[in-house]
Each structure stands twice: as C-alpha cells, then as structure tokens.
Write a protein that binds this DNA or RNA. Structure first.
Lengths: 153, 153
DNA sequence: CTGTTAGTTCTGCAAATACAGAACTAAAAA
DNA sequence: TTTTTAGTTCTGTATTTGCAGAACTAACAG
C-alpha cells in the first residue's frame, strides 16, 4: 500500500496522541500505521519501510504492543513473514481498562483519608465525596455498555 | 508537621502513580505531599525540606501544577511565604476532563474511517461501533454525575 | 552442508529529562 | 540604604530514553 501525505500526517498525529499517554514514539506510530493501513494486516518489513525505522526498534515496539495485548500477528501458509494487526475486537475491554485505570486514584484517596487527621474537615469531606463517586463510577461501567446496546437497537 | 514512614511511603506511591500518567517525578511527589499533609496548605520551604529537593526543582514543579490548574497558593497577612494547596474543590471538572481526554481518540477513529477503503469491512464496522459508543459515552457524562447525586440522597 | 530469510538481542550513542547549585530579582525589614 | 527573605531563572550535568547498526538465531531453501 502506498501512503499518501494525508495518511502519513494522520499517523504522526495518532503517534503524538499516544506519546502523551506515556507510550514511546514509535509505538504510537505503529498503532497509527496499523489503523490507517488498508489491508488491516501489515508485515514486519512493511512497518520498517513505511515508517523508515530500524528493524530492532520495530521488533521491540511490536513486542511491547503484543505484551499489552493491543496487537497480534498471524502467518500464512508457505510464507514465513508475520502480519501484524491491532486487536480492535475488544475495544470494550480496552475502554473498561482505561476507565478502571482512572478510577485507580480512589485507592490512594482512601489511604490518604486514613492517615489524615480531622484538622481540615472540608478537605476531607470533598475527598470522601470523590471516593464515593469513584465507587459509584466503577459499578456503573457495565451499565454504561448495556445502555449503549439498548440505545443502538 | 512530622511525616511518618507511612506518610513518606504513601507519598512515594502517589508519586509513581502520577509518573505513570506522564508527570515528572517531583510533580507527583508534591501532589502526594499536599494530599497527606495535615494542614492542607504547605509552604514552599516545607515542600523543599520534606521532599529533600532543591528550590529550583520545587519552583518549576509548582509553576507546572498551577499552570495545569491543579494547585493554588494563598498568602497570610504579615507573612511573605506562599502556602500551596491542591484544588480538590473541582474534582468533578477534573474527572470530566479526564474522561473527555480518553474519548479524544474518537476524533482519530473518525479520521481513520474517512481514509480507509472498504477492503476490510469487519474492521471498519468495529471502528464505527467504537466511534458510536464514544459519542454516546461523551453525552452520558453529565447524566452520570446526576445519577450519582440522586443515589447519594 | 551452505545460503537465505525473518526477526531478535546486544552494544553504543545522540538527544531529552529532571534535577542541583549558583546567580539573580523583587519586596520587605532593619 | 543595606540586608534579609522568598522565590525564580539560568547553567551545567547525571540519568534515562529511544533508537540505529551489527551481531546473532532459528528455520527453511537449495
């Protein structure tokens, strides 16, 4: 597949977006490439060529993406190459994980509340409020997907 | 205020948590200190002493936190020191921002769908599904807070 | 057995990060 | 006016990051 300027520019922006989420630059670019690539599956070599980076960098980035469960590869009979693709299948799972990750702050809030004295009742009250909300939020996640399903039909 | 080992250890863990979110180490530690500190407000000097870091590092970190709107300082009559505190007041706003930030991926998903051919209908379909969900999700955020309010009462 | 393909692991380095320490600034105190 | 206080900005540096390139490995091909 030949990438147009538009493709390349979009890949870069998707890369930067993922960099901001803490991923290393190339990892974000690879996600971008796998997203815009027509065939869905992209060979190791093609990633190297399209992004103009070294094999070692691609190898490490793909190992990372696979470890994170964001990417898989398949093979074809009579072809030793690996074809990589994103696991868009379980976006619900991924999204849930991200939401739960945000809510992880609750664990700390609760620990903080345990060590705090009652010198600052308003502060403590707000924190407890926030903790209660996070509790509520986590429980609401499944319901969220259900409401979406209903609304779809 | 004298910090116990428990306090210090909790500050470190809160620091690491924020590092994973892309903040620089000291910024995370300062958030931790402001969270566990009894008085709620902590002077510049005390931050320097409690965390054992340089004034310059603290100055930069606090400038960053204030720019991000996560921290404010107040002053006291006849006292030139600045007392820093977290802005826990608007956790709803902060949380909303974080959720919207997650949903920002939708912008890219939609752009990706525009440049993709229909060679991979299933992939495209899943992406469209995800985009629709993100749409739904963003609209649901205010309702989420409302349901929490109701449940509280 | 030798060569080739496809990818991995190791080594090194250029650039970015995160901080220390010193010099500096602005305002209040003496 | 000089000094002190409280914090900022500048300069240098140790550490970490992100990648390139080379050496290596495993499997198949000739």
């Amino acid at each position: 597949m030949v990438l147009t300027e538009k493709h390349k520019e979009l890949i870069e922006r998707i890369g930067v977006f993922h960099e901001h989420k803490g991923m290393q630059p190339l990892v974000g670019r690879i996600i971008g490439l796998l997203l815009v690539h027509d065939e869905g599956e992209v060979s190791f070599d093609e990633i190297v060529e399209q992004l103009g980076v070294s094999k070692s960098a691609v190898s490490n980035a793909l190992t990372f993406l696979q470890a994170k469960g964001r990417c898989v590869y398949s093979t074809r009979p009579g072809d030793r190459k690996r074809y990589f693709a994103l696991k868009v299948s379980d976006w619900k799972e991924d999204f849930t994980k991200e939401l739960e990750n945000i809510a992880e702050i609750q664990k700390f809030i609760d620990e903080v509340l345990e060590v705090r004295t009652d010198k600052t009742p308003e502060f403590n009250c707000r924190m407890r409020d926030f903790s209660n909300f996070l509790d509520f939020f986590k429980k609401e996640i499944p319901a969220l997907f259900e409401r979406f399903k209903k609304q779809q039909a």
